[in-house]
């Protein structure tokens, strides 16, 4: 866990990553908050907060007495959410760093194309 952001946000992101990668398919059961807490060595309440964040967003849903499951359509919704964030989280720092190093816009586009083809 890194120190710059709340842990529950990081936990939510880890679960999101697993859903995006297909490790947690839709309608499959996700580990319990206690399992998350033990695995990541964090407070169970914090883990619960991360899980609940995803419940609020409709990514996960609760089945009473059984546990937490990945909602149908969760992956698609996560993809569109992450796409929105892509610009600010990845492209903007990339452009800033490139400008710092004197890499022109055209050169940057070339580099991206090169990387994409490789």
């Amino acid at each position: 866990m890194d120190d710059s952001r709340p842990i529950f946000v990081q936990i939510a992101e880890l679960i999101e990553n697993d859903i995006l990668a297909g490790t947690l398919p839709e309608e499959s059961q996700v580990p319990s908050t206690n399992e998350f807490a033990a695995f990541h060595r964090i407070n169970p309440a914090t883990a619960g907060k991360g899980v609940n964040l995803l419940v609020d967003e409709g990514i996960l849903y609760k089945r009473r007495g059984i546990g937490m499951f990945v909602a149908t359509g969760a992956r698609e919704r996560l993809v569109s959410k992450r796409r929105e964030q892509f610009q600010t989280q990845y492209v903007r720092p990339l452009v800033t760093e490139a400008a710092k190093l004197g890499i022109s816009g055209a050169a940057l586009v070339d580099m991206i194309r090169e990387e994409n083809d490789a």
């Binding site: 319990s32 908050t33 206690n34 169970p44 309440a45 619960g48 907060k49 609940n52």
Partner: peptide, 8 residues
């Protein structure tokens, strides 16, 4: 707030 089981 949390989803773990209630205190025993």
């Amino acid at each position: 707030m949390t989803s773990y089981s209630p205190p025993a």
